[in-house]
Amino acid sequence: MSYIYYPGCSLEASAIEYDASTRAVMHALDIELAEIEGWSCCGATAAEPVSSLLSFVLPARNLALAEKMKQNFSVMVPCSACYLNLKKVEMEKKQNPSMSASIDECLAEEALKLEGKLKVRHLLDILANDIGADQIKNKVTKKLSGLKIVPYYGCQCLRPYPVFDDPEEPRSMEPLIEACGAEVFPWDMGAQCCGASNMNTKKSAAGKLVQKILKSAKGADAIVTVCPMCQLNLEGFQEELSRKAGEDLSVSVIYLPQLLGMAMGISREELMLHKNLAVKELVLSY
């Protein structure tokens, strides 16, 4: 199996461990990734308030570059914000011809054209549906017995396009976690918003959302994420939110492929567990 790969800006910097662990797990599963040559930013959540058209053109540029590599293929996207932006263009291309014409006019500046022949897929979708828990289980060499995990999905891999999971009560991570020998710890915050896009400009509102999620995770050994924005938001503010709440809200936060990689016997160094901002000894001891 092989996929076109769009890492996105975060995976080169604040989420470098998400990139490393994704590549390591795919390698272990004999899946080839072809990175889009010359890819650029998808616009994140910043393009849309600045210019609606720009928020379509930036992801479209990347899909057009990807089409030059292969057609009728899946593009794997690990970041949920990138995924939504790219997905939005895939959907809009089919539904809105006038927007499509403006996009083409902009892409022509770089002699690019979007045919709309690629399928944008989230990493979680591919892990859960193309690869599946059974194949992961076959590769597990070190069962993570007793490790209690809460799966956190966030928003943008589920909504507004519910293509691979229930957008309110997602479950797609559970079989993968169980395949590792770990336990799914029950909670109801998996699809709730962490407020990441507000953390920089409306910090107190975002802080409240993060606090609620961390409180609900009490009793679990780790939160598992599939988005660099969620990850940074949940791992980066634990001390100050604990102080505000008057209780210890610290908890390990790791990416899904890091968890899978641990069970598959991939080294901590390769999974870059030293790069996460909140990982406790207990998790590292596995």
Partner: peptide, 12 residues
């Protein structure tokens, strides 16, 4: 509108 964190729950 500045407080919208684009979670898409309302849209859903």
């Amino acid at each position: 509108f500045a407080y919208c964190s684009t979670c898409y729950f309302c849209t859903l």
